[in-house]
Write a protein that binds this DNA or RNA. Structure first.
Lengths: 198, 198
DNA sequence: CATATAATGAACACGCAATCGATTATTCAG
DNA sequence: CTGAATAATCGATTGCGTGTTCATTATATG
């Protein structure tokens, strides 16, 4: 009767955990379009049919995984929003916590963000960052469509969010050669688009 | 006997042109993983077997298309390299010509760069831009590993190249609301990472 | 015109997708 | 602890797309 049972039933949790882990494993080994339901079920040591009890197909499963990812990051970054730091350069703790979270779960993020054929996750994270950056800019600069440096606001958002994502992806692909703290500080040096033009 | 015949034979050119156009058409209509050889051949009004005379499979075809794309852009941007403009802020004609080229072939670039499941083309373009930016930085700043603003060089390259690509993709997805010239100038306002810190 | 080669059409084996019905195993409430 | 609910399994089936073959037709080029 209770629909939440579908999430607390240990059999369901077990199956989904095994599917998720198998998916990450396979993604480390091969391209995503080589991952069939057959292979995935075999690796997860579950029956093929069981897969269909949980997901419609593999893209659907990736969709759900991406939802969970956004949900989790959103929760982490949501805590930052309470802090009323008006200083535009003080958003680096947000970035720092994001980088730390990614570093802690690097096995997962390295494959879902770093694999060259799984842009779904990157797109989702990009969307999230765009929303957060927009929110932040609005708080700092009001509703003007042009930043203080003379840059169109939407262009500044495109630029900043994709720079952030792209750098994180490269950082993961190179096996995180810098600490989250160092990288966060580098971001602060690079993000000068909201300052006045010299 | 002459292997170049394989490229001048009008039948081959015709077939490949039709395949390419059909692929772009289908990419406008559906996700790339829904494009089967069956569908592609049908849309291109060629026999399914004929496809295999030219490409091994669809990923192989996309690979070839990406090669052609990089080749073409490389040719355009290669002409810029002759100009010995030492001024770091004078690389905007390069960006301008890139944007103009993309705008002229926007139907193609909108689908191959803008579609959410064809990161292959974005990756290739990213690689090309990374090489060009690296080359440019080396000419300006020598072999130092840190830029004048105190930013690690590789991080600056990750940041700058992905910002460039990401902005172009967003620009395409929004149907190019700005002229290439305007966008190029905006880039110059945003790319301050190589200047001294105030 | 004659030769080379590109394109076609039919046919085949193969793997995977997606679903069905019946059966077994596990969970959880009373 | 017991029984009802439901998750997971197993075997089987249908359909679709792939990748390849072989003989035949159409087109290009010298």
């Amino acid at each position: 009767m209770d629909p939440t049972n579908s999430r607390t039933d240990p059999r369901i949790l077990r199956t989904r955990r095994m599917l998720r882990e198998a998916f990450i494993e396979l993604l480390e080994e091969m391209d995503v379009d080589k991952i069939s339901v057959n292979r995935l079920a075999e690796r997860a040591t579950i029956n093929r049919v069981t897969f269909y009890l949980h997901y419609r197909d593999i893209p659907d499963m990736m969709d759900k995984l991406a939802d969970e990812m956004v949900e989790e990051i959103s929760k982490i970054l949501g805590e930052e929003r309470q802090e009323p730091s008006a200083d535009p350069n003080e958003d680096w703790p947000m970035i720092l916590h994001l980088l730390e979270h990614i570093a802690e779960n690097s096995k997962f993020y390295k494959v879902v963000l770093g694999s060259k054929r799984t842009p779904l996750f990157t797109e989702r994270l990009l969307g999230l960052l765009k929303r957060l950056i927009t929110e932040r800019i609005e708080r700092i600069e009001g509703m003007a469509t042009v930043t203080r440096a003379g840059v169109q606001r939407d262009i500044a958002i495109w630029y900043g969010s994709s720079a952030l994502i792209g750098t994180i992806v490269s950082w993961l692909r190179h096996d995180m050669p810098y600490t989250p703290a160092f990288l966060a500080k580098q971001f602060m040096l690079l993000r000068r688009q909201f300052n006045k033009q010299p």
